[in-house]
Amino acid sequence: MQNLTFGQHADGTWGLAHSAEEATAMGFWAFHVDTLFWAVVLGFSFYFLFGSVARKANSGVPTRFQSAIEIIVEFVDTSVRESFHGTSKFIAPLALTLFVWIFFMNFMDLIPVDWLPWLATQAGVHYQKVVPTTDVNATMGMSLTVFVLILYYSIRIKGVGGFIAELTGQPFASNSLAGKFVFFLPNLLLETIALIAKPVSLGLRLFGNLYAGELIFILIALIFTAGSGFIAAGLSSLFGEHIPAWFWVLATASVFATLWLNLQGKLDNKKTLWLLLVEMLLVGGLAFLGGQLMHFAWAVFHLIIVTLQAFIFMMLTIVYLSMAHEHH
């Protein structure tokens, strides 16, 4: 899995990296185009989704969609009220944006891992990672912004002196000047570590959870591929060495179509079962079924992780900023 990286080549020209080595060689001044693209697309979908409700928002009878959006807003608002004990017009919108945006970015993980990259490949783009939160740059970018906000609010509320006092006056406290002098450095060291640990843990927690989740999806896909090698051999004789991705897309789509027809009542259960069996045998036998089931199971579990991590990021941001607002 390689990000689509835009940066300066070794020869001085700017362009997209063609390999992982080239991307690394570009150094710091390079950009993951895919990460930024999806982050911005998802950010705008958050904005338009909530904006479509906000524009028409009134105190009359809400539509179902408006209610759904309002439940999320209410939930975030309650969380902020419970955890943040200052008055700020900024914290609640920040929390809402982080929660929904991160949830959307995480949610991209539940789209089968190779579909969108395959589409990108068809369009001539060879590297594509569609889940921005599996890119450490994205998560650290957000957590560092939170860090800057922590510093900003700490200094604005407590003043520079107050903030320095907070960094150097604890955890070892002393009333005498000599004691203060002695504890100055250990306190500064410990408090600085504690301070730096906030954004690092915040960003890496999100990244780690999502990256691991994606890896497990890939792992399941690999197991399933190995298991269905027999059928794959048969398919290879049909399609040549590489089975095109659209075949898998088609197969999955046909399975979903069958299930959908069953749900619509247009197919009875017996026919549905037979049809599913035939479809699965055709594209990968029981390994396919096993793979599908494992994917499904992990996707359900991952759905919890996706939501939970978005929530944790939001809550910790609120808590950190609340701490920045409080005097010790």
Binding site: G27, F31, L36, A39, N137, M140
Partner: peptide
């Protein structure tokens, strides 16, 4: 690779938060 994506992501976040604060949160 840690690279300047970090900075752009941070800027994007600030913009979305500002949008939200300005246009979404108050009417809702």
């Amino acid at each position: 690779n840690i690279n300047a994506t970090l900075i752009l992501q941070s800027i994007a976040m600030m913009i979305f938060v500002w949008f939200c604060m300005k246009f979404l949160w108050p009417p809702l």
